[in-house]
Protein backbone atom coordinates (compact mmCIF):
# COMPACT_ATOMS: atom_id res chain seq x y z
CA UNK A 1 0.00 0.00 0.00
CA UNK A 2 1.08 3.50 -0.51
CA UNK A 3 -0.16 4.64 2.87
CA UNK A 4 0.70 5.59 5.48
CA UNK A 5 3.40 7.50 3.70
CA UNK A 6 6.24 9.37 5.22
CA UNK A 7 7.15 12.04 4.61
CA UNK A 8 4.66 12.65 1.83
CA UNK A 9 1.57 11.58 3.64
CA UNK A 10 -0.83 14.29 4.61
CA UNK A 11 -3.84 12.14 5.30
CA UNK A 12 -3.46 12.30 9.03
CA UNK A 13 -3.65 16.04 9.14
CA UNK A 14 -7.02 17.75 9.29
CA UNK A 15 -8.06 18.30 5.71
CA UNK A 16 -9.00 21.91 6.21
CA UNK A 17 -6.56 22.87 8.87
CA UNK A 18 -5.38 25.82 6.88
CA UNK A 19 -1.86 24.56 7.36
CA UNK A 20 0.42 24.02 4.42
CA UNK A 21 0.22 20.29 4.85
CA UNK A 22 2.81 19.16 2.42
CA UNK A 23 5.24 21.93 2.98
CA UNK A 24 4.63 21.81 6.71
CA UNK A 25 5.26 18.14 6.79
CA UNK A 26 8.40 18.23 4.78
CA UNK A 27 9.91 21.53 5.63
CA UNK A 28 9.32 20.96 9.28
CA UNK A 29 7.88 24.44 9.67
CA UNK A 30 5.03 26.35 8.20
CA UNK A 31 5.73 28.31 5.08
CA UNK A 32 2.97 30.67 4.19
CA UNK A 33 0.11 29.15 6.11
CA UNK A 34 -2.32 28.50 3.29
CA UNK A 35 -3.03 25.16 1.69
CA UNK A 36 -4.49 24.65 -1.66
CA UNK A 37 -7.10 22.32 -0.32
CA UNK A 38 -7.98 24.37 2.72
CA UNK A 39 -8.04 27.47 0.62
CA UNK A 40 -10.22 26.08 -2.12
CA UNK A 41 -12.63 24.75 0.40
CA UNK A 42 -12.93 28.08 2.16
CA UNK A 43 -13.05 30.18 -0.95
CA UNK A 44 -15.65 28.21 -2.80
CA UNK A 45 -15.64 27.98 -6.54
CA UNK A 46 -17.11 30.50 -8.88
CA UNK A 47 -17.07 30.78 -12.58
CA UNK A 48 -14.98 33.87 -12.36
CA UNK A 49 -12.25 32.12 -10.47
CA UNK A 50 -11.29 32.44 -6.89
CA UNK A 51 -9.79 35.09 -4.75
CA UNK A 52 -7.05 34.23 -2.35
CA UNK A 53 -6.68 35.53 1.15
CA UNK A 54 -3.06 35.43 2.00
CA UNK A 55 -1.12 35.97 5.16
CA UNK A 56 0.87 38.54 3.20
CA UNK A 57 4.13 37.13 4.43
CA UNK A 58 5.51 35.35 1.46
CA UNK A 59 4.87 37.19 -1.70
CA UNK A 60 3.63 40.62 -0.81
CA UNK A 61 6.45 42.23 -2.68
CA UNK A 62 6.00 40.14 -5.79
CA UNK A 63 2.23 40.16 -6.09
CA UNK A 64 1.15 42.71 -8.62
CA UNK A 65 -2.57 42.31 -8.52
CA UNK A 66 -3.29 43.10 -4.91
CA UNK A 67 -6.91 44.05 -4.54
CA UNK A 68 -6.76 45.77 -1.24
CA UNK A 69 -5.66 45.63 2.35
CA UNK A 70 -7.68 43.66 4.87
CA UNK A 71 -7.55 44.13 8.60
CA UNK A 72 -4.77 42.41 10.52
CA UNK A 73 -2.38 42.53 7.64
CA UNK A 74 -4.30 40.07 5.52
CA UNK A 75 -4.27 40.92 1.83
CA UNK A 76 -6.36 39.53 -0.95
CA UNK A 77 -4.95 38.38 -4.25
CA UNK A 78 -6.78 37.31 -7.34
CA UNK A 79 -9.08 35.99 -8.50
CA UNK A 80 -7.39 37.07 -11.71
CA UNK A 81 -3.80 36.30 -12.56
CA UNK A 82 -1.09 37.78 -10.42
CA UNK A 83 2.59 38.12 -11.24
CA UNK A 84 4.67 35.67 -9.27
CA UNK A 85 8.43 35.38 -9.25
CA UNK A 86 9.83 31.92 -8.69
CA UNK A 87 13.37 30.64 -8.39
CA UNK A 88 13.41 27.53 -10.51
CA UNK A 89 16.59 25.58 -11.08
CA UNK A 90 18.62 28.60 -10.15
CA UNK A 91 16.86 30.94 -12.55
CA UNK A 92 14.33 33.63 -11.79
CA UNK A 93 11.02 33.12 -13.57
CA UNK A 94 8.13 35.57 -13.58
CA UNK A 95 4.76 34.07 -14.42
CA UNK A 96 1.21 35.33 -14.36
CA UNK A 97 -1.05 32.84 -12.68
CA UNK A 98 -4.26 32.64 -10.77
CA UNK A 99 -3.26 32.49 -7.12
CA UNK A 100 -4.86 29.05 -6.78
CA UNK A 101 -2.42 27.53 -9.28
CA UNK A 102 -0.38 24.67 -7.90
CA UNK A 103 3.35 24.64 -8.26
CA UNK A 104 3.04 21.53 -10.45
CA UNK A 105 0.65 23.24 -12.85
CA UNK A 106 2.69 26.43 -12.86
CA UNK A 107 5.75 24.48 -13.96
CA UNK A 108 3.94 22.29 -16.47
CA UNK A 109 1.57 24.77 -18.02
CA UNK A 110 3.24 28.15 -17.56
CA UNK A 111 6.90 27.24 -17.88
CA UNK A 112 6.58 24.23 -20.20
CA UNK A 113 8.59 22.15 -17.75
CA UNK A 114 6.72 18.91 -18.09
CA UNK A 115 9.22 16.59 -16.42
CA UNK A 116 7.23 16.95 -13.21
CA UNK A 117 4.22 14.63 -13.54
CA UNK A 118 0.77 14.99 -12.04
CA UNK A 119 -1.02 11.72 -11.35
CA UNK A 120 -3.36 11.94 -8.37
CA UNK A 121 -3.28 15.70 -7.82
CA UNK A 122 -3.91 15.18 -4.13
CA UNK A 123 -0.75 14.11 -2.41
CA UNK A 124 -1.13 10.36 -2.69
CA UNK A 125 1.46 9.24 -5.26
CA UNK A 126 4.47 11.59 -5.21
CA UNK A 127 4.79 11.56 -8.99
CA UNK A 128 5.03 15.36 -8.74
CA UNK A 129 7.94 15.36 -6.29
CA UNK A 130 10.43 18.17 -6.59
CA UNK A 131 12.76 19.90 -4.21
CA UNK A 132 11.99 23.07 -2.35
CA UNK A 133 15.19 24.19 -0.65
CA UNK A 134 16.47 20.61 -0.96
CA UNK A 135 13.41 19.11 0.75
CA UNK A 136 11.24 16.83 -1.42
CA UNK A 137 7.65 18.05 -1.62
CA UNK A 138 4.54 17.14 -3.57
CA UNK A 139 4.17 20.01 -6.00
CA UNK A 140 0.49 19.19 -6.61
CA UNK A 141 -0.17 20.01 -2.96
CA UNK A 142 1.79 23.23 -2.96
CA UNK A 143 0.58 26.49 -4.39
CA UNK A 144 3.00 28.18 -6.72
CA UNK A 145 2.81 31.28 -4.56
CA UNK A 146 3.97 29.21 -1.60
CA UNK A 147 7.19 28.58 -3.47
CA UNK A 148 8.01 32.26 -3.61
CA UNK A 149 11.27 32.90 -1.85
CA UNK A 150 12.30 29.26 -2.00
CA UNK A 151 14.72 27.49 -4.31
CA UNK A 152 12.75 25.10 -6.49
CA UNK A 153 14.63 22.24 -8.14
CA UNK A 154 12.79 20.14 -10.70
CA UNK A 155 13.87 17.02 -12.54
CA UNK A 156 15.08 19.26 -15.34
CA UNK A 157 17.34 21.07 -12.91
CA UNK A 158 18.52 17.91 -11.19
CA UNK A 159 19.55 16.53 -14.57
CA UNK A 160 22.09 19.33 -14.80
CA UNK A 161 23.68 18.45 -11.47
CA UNK A 162 26.27 15.79 -10.71
CA UNK A 163 24.16 14.07 -8.06
CA UNK A 164 21.27 13.97 -10.48
CA UNK A 165 23.54 12.53 -13.07
CA UNK A 166 24.81 9.71 -10.90
CA UNK A 167 21.29 8.78 -9.75
CA UNK A 168 20.06 8.80 -13.34
CA UNK A 169 23.00 6.69 -14.47
CA UNK A 170 22.17 4.17 -11.74
CA UNK A 171 18.51 4.13 -12.81
CA UNK A 172 19.65 3.38 -16.35
CA UNK A 173 22.08 0.70 -15.29
CA UNK A 174 19.46 -1.15 -13.24
CA UNK A 175 16.65 -0.41 -15.68
CA UNK A 176 14.69 1.15 -12.84
CA UNK A 177 11.79 2.14 -15.05
CA UNK A 178 9.19 0.78 -17.41
CA UNK A 179 6.63 3.27 -18.65
CA UNK A 180 8.67 5.97 -16.94
CA UNK A 181 5.77 8.04 -15.67
CA UNK A 182 6.74 7.67 -12.01
CA UNK A 183 10.44 7.93 -12.81
CA UNK A 184 11.06 11.69 -12.46
CA UNK A 185 9.37 11.63 -9.05
CA UNK A 186 11.34 8.56 -8.04
CA UNK A 187 14.63 10.12 -9.13
CA UNK A 188 13.83 13.27 -7.15
CA UNK A 189 12.88 11.33 -4.03
CA UNK A 190 15.89 9.04 -4.19
CA UNK A 191 18.41 11.78 -4.76
CA UNK A 192 16.86 13.81 -1.93
CA UNK A 193 17.34 10.76 0.26
CA UNK A 194 21.04 10.61 -0.57
CA UNK A 195 21.43 14.28 0.29
CA UNK A 196 20.08 13.58 3.74
CA UNK A 197 21.49 10.10 4.14
CA UNK A 198 24.44 9.40 1.82
CA UNK A 199 24.77 5.75 2.89
CA UNK A 200 21.24 4.40 3.16
CA UNK A 201 20.20 0.81 3.70
CA UNK A 202 17.58 -0.81 1.49
CA UNK A 203 15.05 -0.20 4.24
CA UNK A 204 15.89 3.50 4.15
CA UNK A 205 15.20 3.53 0.42
CA UNK A 206 11.93 1.69 0.93
CA UNK A 207 10.88 4.22 3.54
CA UNK A 208 11.90 7.18 1.41
CA UNK A 209 9.94 5.90 -1.59
CA UNK A 210 6.95 4.75 0.46
CA UNK A 211 4.91 7.62 -0.92
CA UNK A 212 6.00 7.11 -4.54
CA UNK A 213 3.64 4.89 -6.47
CA UNK A 214 4.98 2.87 -9.39
CA UNK A 215 2.20 0.93 -11.05
CA UNK A 216 4.63 -0.88 -13.34
CA UNK A 217 6.27 -2.37 -10.27
CA UNK A 218 9.86 -1.29 -10.74
CA UNK A 219 10.58 -1.00 -7.01
CA UNK A 220 13.28 -3.70 -6.79
CA UNK A 221 15.24 -1.92 -9.49
CA UNK A 222 14.76 1.46 -7.81
CA UNK A 223 16.12 0.10 -4.53
CA UNK A 224 19.13 -1.34 -6.34
CA UNK A 225 19.73 1.84 -8.33
CA UNK A 226 19.63 4.06 -5.28
CA UNK A 227 22.02 1.86 -3.37
CA UNK A 228 24.31 1.83 -6.37
CA UNK A 229 24.23 5.62 -6.66
CA UNK A 230 25.12 5.77 -2.97
CA UNK A 231 28.00 3.41 -3.55
CA UNK A 232 26.45 0.96 -1.11
CA UNK A 233 27.03 -2.67 -2.00
CA UNK A 234 24.11 -4.39 -3.53
CA UNK A 235 24.93 -7.97 -2.58
CA UNK A 236 21.74 -9.33 -1.07
CA UNK A 237 19.38 -7.04 -2.92
CA UNK A 238 16.19 -7.97 -4.68
CA UNK A 239 17.73 -7.05 -7.98
CA UNK A 240 17.71 -9.59 -10.73
CA UNK A 241 19.56 -9.60 -14.02
Amino acid sequence: MSGPKLPHDSSDLPQDSGVAQTAENKLGKGTTGITRRGFLKGAGVTAAGTALLEGARAFGREAAATRGEHPEGVREFGPGPVAVTLQVNGKERVIHIEPRTTLADALRLEMAMTGTKVVCDRGACSACTLLMDDIPINSCMTLAIDAVGHQVTTIEGLTESSEGHSMQAAFLKHDAMQCGFCTPGMVMTCSALLKKNPKPTEDDVRLATAGNLCRCGTYPRIFAATLEAAGVSDSESTHNA
Binding site: M1, S2, G3, K5, S11, V119, C120, R122, G123, A124, C125, V205, R206, L207, T209, A210, G211, N212, L213, R215, G217, Y219, P220, I222, F223, T238, N240, A241
Partner: peptide, 20 residues
Protein backbone atom coordinates in the same frame (compact mmCIF):
# COMPACT_ATOMS: atom_id res chain seq x y z
CA UNK B 1 -8.39 7.82 -5.53
CA UNK B 2 -4.89 6.60 -4.78
CA UNK B 3 -4.99 7.08 -1.04
CA UNK B 4 -7.92 4.81 -0.31
CA UNK B 5 -7.61 2.42 -3.25
CA UNK B 6 -4.70 0.53 -1.80
CA UNK B 7 -1.85 -0.62 -4.02
CA UNK B 8 1.31 -2.39 -2.91
CA UNK B 9 4.03 0.16 -2.32
CA UNK B 10 7.75 0.06 -1.68
CA UNK B 11 7.49 -1.29 1.83
CA UNK B 12 5.36 -4.28 0.86
CA UNK B 13 7.64 -5.49 -1.92
CA UNK B 14 9.08 -8.91 -1.13
CA UNK B 15 12.42 -10.25 -2.24
CA UNK B 16 11.72 -11.17 -5.84
CA UNK B 17 13.88 -13.57 -7.78
CA UNK B 18 13.09 -13.93 -11.45
CA UNK B 19 14.44 -16.81 -13.48
CA UNK B 20 13.82 -16.30 -17.13
Amino acid sequence: NLDRYQIAGSREIPQIEVQL
